[in-house]
Design a protein around this nucleic acid. Structure first.
Lengths: 142, 142
DNA sequence: GCTTGACCTCAAGTTGGCTTGAAGTCGTAG
DNA sequence: CTACGACTTCAAGCCAACTTGAGGTCAAGC
């Protein structure tokens, strides 16, 4: 039962204390009582934070992620939704490929104006067919 | 010189008038004078909006996109940067593939608890190595 | 027993990309 | 000529996911 202070959790996960408090506030994680004022976290929380990170990377909102945990901490993953998500990622990959090719073309095309280059226009058209992209959550740590 | 009202532009691009006004406000598009109060847009703007959409799909912010246009409407993209961007997209694709596979596994794995499934844990680890994901801008119109 | 510094709360602020609402203008079809 | 409806402005609101700041608490090491 080695409990951790919020600072230790932060250090071990890279998730800042303010965020951990926020996560607790919205019910995404739980602390196990206090030591004085201080929240005490069970080691459990580390795994849970990994799962949260995974979910975020996949483009789920915090609310969606919260819904995937059962009260016992087990995952309760909506299979159909996961498949949908995987398919969405697949489409995103296709879009990215088109885009990547477009950028590469633009970088190498000798045409005086990209806007007049037929193959660029074609690539653009392909790209404009893309599905509404879901937000891949940011936090590019700049 | 067939000018368009904002409504026509909206209809032809799917971008709502409020957004078009917002884009003009931040200098992302321009209108060519007014007819009475009404903005008049040149057909040009349609192409420009396609490019903007393309940029958004690639994960560029509106500010970044704005920086890619020269005053004459031409694109101004340094080759090196474009290649870098393309490479970034490539990495993003790889990350997405890992994630997609992880999701598919989770959706289909018969293990009683994902947390105990070795291959899930492995996928999680792989996913947690992913680069900082670029924001694919959202606003899936729900 | 006192200082220290890691924690605490709560409210408010931030960012990006828009949307909404109220109140006003104006070209055109009838 | 008048009504209509498509436009206009401007300020404010919204959302997610946090962060920041002010002011307070408290356990542990000296």
């Amino acid at each position: 039962m080695k409990m951790m202070d919020i600072g230790e959790v932060a250090e071990r996960t890279g998730v800042p204390p303010s965020t951990l408090r926020y996560y607790e506030e919205i019910g995404l994680i739980r602390s196990f009582g206090r030591h004085g004022l201080r929240r005490q976290f069970e080691p459990d929380v580390l795994l849970r934070l990994s799962l949260i990170a995974l979910g975020k990377t996949a483009g789920f909102s915090l609310v969606e992620i919260a819904a995937m945990f059962r009260r016992d901490g087990q995952l309760d993953l909506p299979r159909a939704e996961l498949h949908a998500k995987a398919d969405e990622l697949q489409r995103q990959m296709v879009d990215l490929r088109v885009l990547r090719d477009a950028l590469r073309h633009v970088a190498d095309c000798p045409a005086p104006s990209h806007l007049e280059c037929p193959s660029f226009r074609k690539l653009m058209k392909a790209a404009s067919r893309t599905r509404s992209p879901r937000k891949l959550p940011a936090k590019a740590r700049t």
